[in-house]
Each structure stands twice: as structure tokens, then as C-alpha cells.
Write a protein that binds this DNA or RNA. Structure first.
Ligand SMILES: [Mg+2]
Length: 529
DNA sequence: CTTATGTGA
DNA sequence: GCGATCACATAAG
């Protein structure tokens, strides 16, 4: 008891000891819906017995509040989570509070115009879909689409050589993108549906959905610290972390004869703009999870990719795989290579991978084999991680974040394999989350204690921080952010010493969708006189 | 492959 | 009419 009290006093000072965060660190998978559930759950001692069946709530005595809170704090200490709790997660609270208080301005009129334009386009696509199907149907209904494609047109019978995906839970014929791509040479309808889906998503979520979150001329997301099991943050209303990276081209029908169809570019990120006199500044950890994987595996080939000076890893791989020089690659090619790499290292099966690669399942498994053959230590890291998780029931990130995975000992093959992939993914994704949070805390602290810096943190997109900076301070602040983030390769106090350097790219612009990279001199920022 | 949130049926 | 569930989209790695 004395130990707990002194630890609490050392850390608390005037800060809050948030029990919800404490409970989430102990078991990130468990989402206590409210404070009372939390108290009831941790009243007895460990998190195990659901003493009260978590339903209708009885009033609890004050003593149980104190008891359950102390119990949570005690468990944090015994499980080696105290440092993470006190110096990372609690320090995030004022950072997130500041982020929520900062308004992100939007071009509301442009959003309204695109909403109308997309509405017209959707009606056209709906007509085309009905014509191609030879009947009217609700294009946005996957149930109705399944009937048209597989019962009326019976397209599955005309492509028996390649196998079509099934829906996850009910094992029906899927109408997902992967399925429609397989069907698109057999009939005009799948292609129309693919475009309809793209435009519909754009309108409903990224134009109308954003508009519904706009207050006056700005938005501000709600940031959740305890909703991701990996330690990542999440954002809602709007989900600022899921806005499309690539713009979408829409062809407008031309009513003037002899003219080509007008192409309009819709880019939701361009709707977000800084205030007059200010500039957006983004700082992005380059290939953060792959660098962490290099560190965790000590794979010589993987380490070499980051220790030797060379081109961007994903660009290099895209170039090799596509057989095209790096200068001729589109941004989509790099994104594609990135998706392939992460899918492989996190254990994608050959069917899934064949969908991503656009080749047969046999070719896909050959591709994985040759990849894992080249980076041999990745496989032994996976085995090591799984074995350790089987032994102790949980895995940990580089900063001691923990995830319990009881299913790792399941007798069911599918259940156990999923837990194994989750274990491996957690170690890497959780470690990346640790680094990104440390970066936010350090930069926030620098800005808070500076008398001149006015930069405001607007958002975190997992490995990227978005700031609004006074025009005159952009270069200076960019240098400060870059060096602060890259210095996290070594954190003495936590015993973190990464075997590879961290690389941070900074960019700035007058709209979030139109940022250009800043190339700063390699030196540190000038110390103020 | 993992981690999220949003929309529509 | 409301909430849960499913399928499908987007993002990040
Ligand atoms: Mg990045």
C-alpha cells in the first residue's frame, strides 16, 4: 500500500490517474462501456470474475471506487505497465485535449458543390447499371446485386478456372471489389458497379459525411485513446484518419457537341485548409513498421535496406516487381508495393495475396516464399513471437505495451492462427504506436514551454502529425519536428535503442491534399540566442 | 494480413 | 422507429 501511494504521489502531482486508461492498458481488448462497469469489474482484485453480470446497475459504495482504482494501479505496477501509464498515456491526455480544441477549417462551399455534382454522376451510373443488368434494382444493395450477378446472369459459371471470394460470415458469393474485378471481362455490369461504389463512398462519407460534421466553417474530431487494442489512437466524427489519399477523377457528360468529356478531380483532403497567415505542416515517419521489423528481426537484408543510403524501399520494390524504372512509377504503384509487403509479413494467405497481386494463388505463394527466403530472420521472429505468446499468454511492444491473446492456445486451427497473426502484428504495430505517441508528447512539450512557437497540433494519422504553423515559423518548426521525431531511435530512459535510423519526411502546403516535401539542411535547428 | 470508423441495407 | 448485424468501403502499417 505504501508503495502504491508513493508511486501515485510521485506521478500524480496535479494530474489525473485515469482508471479507464489503466484498465485498457491491463487488457486493451476489454471495452468497459462505462465507469461503473469498470468499477464493478475490478472490484474483487484481478480482472477475471464478472462478479455482477454487468447489466442493470446497483449504486456502489464509495469504498468500492477507491478499492477498484487502487487495484488497477497496483496491477499496473506488478505487470510492468506503470511507466507506460504514467509517462506516456497520462501525458497524452493534455495533448489530445489540445488537439480537440484546435479547429480545422474546411471549404464548405466547395464541399456543397461537389456533393451536387456527385449526386448527378451517381444517377447516371445507376441508369447505366440498370441498362447493363436488363432490370431495375437497388445498386447500393449487395443482396440485390448478388441476385443479379449470380442468379440472373449466372456469371460464376463462366469463370470456373479462377475462384471467386465468398462473404466472411455467411459463405455467400461476394460482390466485393476483388470479386467484381474477376468478373469485369465477362460483363459490363461489374465495372459500372465498381465506379458507382467509388463515387458513392466519396459522396456519402467524404463529402456529405464531412459536411455533417462541419460547425460554422470548421471540424474537430473526437480522439479516442482506448479504442484500439494496438495502442493506436482513433478518430471519429469525422474519422480524420480515413480520408482518401488519392484524388478521384470524375468524367462529366458534356452537352456541347464536339467537345471531350470534362474531367473533374475530387480530392477531399484539399477541402481542409489552414487559417490565413498559417500553413499546414505534416511530419511523417517513413516506413515505420518495416523499420521496426528490421530492428525486431535483426534480419541482415532488411537492416541493409535502411542502413545503406538508397531509394525509398517501397519505390524500389515496386520498380523491381513491375520492371519499370523508378521515375516512371505512379504514387499508386508505391502504395501497391507497400500493401503487398505488409500483407506478406503479417501472414496473408495465398488466396488473399493473389487478389492483391492480381495473379493465381500458386504464383502468389511462390512470391511469398521467395520474399521470406530473402528475409530469413522474419520467419524466425514470427516463430519466436508465437512461441513466447504461447508460453506467457501475451506479447509486448518495445515500450512494454501488452496484449493478452488467450486464443493462442486454442484447439481450433483457424482461431489459433488468427491469434498468431495478431500476436506478430501487435508487436510491430504496437511499437509503432508507442513511437508516434512519444513524438506527440515531446513536440507538444517543446511547443508548450516555448515563448515563441505558436504551432498547433491538428491531427495524428498514425505515423503522421499534422500541424498548423504561422507562415514565418514553418522552416524552423519543420526542422525542430524532424529532429525530435528522428531522435526517438534512442530513448535512454526506456532502454529503447533501435538498430536502424528513423526517417521523417516533412511537407507543407496551403491545403492538406496539396503538400510538397520540404528538403531541410541535415544540421540541427539553430539554437536561439 | 492487422488495426480502426462510416454508410446503407 | 431503433439497435444489432452484415457487407462493403476508406485509412494506417
Ligand atoms: Mg508514413
Amino acid at each position: 500500500m505504501v508503495v502504491i501511494v508513493s508511486a501515485v504521489l510521485t506521478v500524480a502531482q496535479c494530474r489525473i490517474l485515469d482508471p479507464q486508461i489503466a484498465a485498457w492498458l491491463l487488457d486493451p481488448a476489454d471495452n468497459a462501456s462505462c465507469f461503473q462497469d469498470l468499477v464493478t469489474k475490478h472490484y474483487g482484485r484481478p480482472a477475471e470474475p464478472p462478479a455482477q453480470p454487468l447489466g442493470p446497475r446497483k449504486p456502489l459504495p464509495q469504498s468500492s471506487l477507491v478499492s477498484s482504482s487502487l487495484c488497477l494501479l497496483y496491477q499496473l505496477m506488478t505487470q510492468g505497465l506503470w511507466e507506460l501509464f504514467s509517462s506516456m498515456e497520462l501525458s497524452m491526455i493534455p495533448v489530445l485535449a489540445a488537439m480537440e480544441s484546435h479547429r480545422i477549417h474546411v471549404d464548405k462551399e466547395a464541399l456543397k458543390r461537389t456533393s451536387e455534382m456527385l449526386g448527378v454522376k451517381l444517377k447516371q451510373l445507376e441508369q447505366e447499371a440498370h441498362k447493363a443488368a436488363g432490370q431495375q434494382f437497388l445498386v447500393s444493395s449487395s443482396t440485390q446485386l448478388r441476385l443479379v450477378l449470380f442468379e440472373k446472369l449466372r456469371l460464376q459459371e463462366r469463370c470456373e478456372n479462377r475462384k471467386l471470394p465468398k462473404t466472411m460470415l455467411k459463405q455467400q458469393q461476394s460482390t466485393s471489389e476483388a470479386a467484381l474485378l474477376q468478373l469485369q471481362d465477362l460483363h459490363p455490369l461489374p465495372k459500372i458497379i465498381l465506379e458507382y461504389r467509388q463515387v458513392h463512398k466519396m459522396k456519402s462519407t467524404f463529402v456529405d459525411g464531412i459536411l455533417s460534421c462541419v460547425k460554422k466553417t470548421y471540424i474537430s474530431s473526437t480522439w479516442n485513446q482506448t479504442s484500439a487494442v494496438s495502442g493506436r489512437l482513433s478518430a471519429k466524427q469525422p474519422n480524420f484518419q480515413a480520408l482518401p489519399r488519392q484524388p478521384v477523377q470524375i468524367s462529366k457528360k458534356q452537352y456541347v457537341q464536339g467537345k471531350d468529356a470534362e474531367l473533374v478531380t475530387v480530392h477531399p483532403r484539399d477541402m481542409f485548409i489552414p487559417r490565413e497567415g498559417w500553413t499546414f505542416l505534416a511530419a511523417d515517419f517513413c516506413q515505420v513498421e518495416l523499420r521496426l521489423l528490421a530492428h525486431l528481426t535483426s534480419d541482415p537484408e532488411l537492416l541493409r535496406l535502411f542502413l545503406d543510403p538508397g531509394p525509398d524501399v517501397f519505390t524500389m520494390l515496386a520498380s523491381q516487381w513491375k520492371g519499370v524504372p523508378e521515375q516512371q512509377l505512379e504514387p499508386e504503384d508505391r502504395e501497391h508495393a507497400k500493401r503487398i509487403v505488409y500483407s506478406m509479413v503479417y501472414g496473408a494467405g495465398r488466396e488473399r495475396l493473389s487478389g492483391i497481386l492480381g495473379v493465381s494463388a500458386e504464383q502468389a505463394s511462390q512470391f511469398v516464399d521467395s520474399f521470406l527466403q530473402r528475409y530469413k530472420e522474419v520467419q524466425s521472429f514470427i516463430q519466436r513471437t508465437v512461441q513466447l505468446c504461447q508460453k506467457q499468454g501475451y506479447v509486448v511492444s518495445i515500450m512494454g505495451r501488452r496484449r493478452s491473446l488467450p486464443h493462442i492456445r486454442s484447439a481450433d486451427w483457424a482461431v489459433r492462427n488468427q491469434a498468431e497473426r495478431q500476436a506478430v502484428n501487435f508487436v510491430v504495430q504496437g511499437s509503432a504506436a508507442d513511437l508516434c505517441k512519444m513524438a506527440m508528447i515531446r513536440i507538444f512539450s517543446l511547443v508548450s514551454s516555448s515563448s515563441s512557437l505558436t504551432a498547433r497540433l491538428l491531427a495524428q494519422i498514425h505515423d503522421e502529425l499534422l500541424f498548423e504553423v504561422e507562415d514565418s515559423q514553418v522552416e524552423h518548426f519543420a526542422a525542430l519536428v524532424k529532429t525530435t521525431m528522428e531522435s526517438l531511435q534512442h530513448i535512454d530512459s526506456l532502454g529503447v535503442h533501435l538498430k536502424v535510423p528513423l526517417k521523417v519526411a516533412v511537407s507543407s502546403g496551403r491545403a492538406w491534399g496539396s503538400m510538397s516535401e520540404l528538403h531541410l539542411p541535415p544540421a540541427s535547428p539553430p539554437p536561439s540566442p
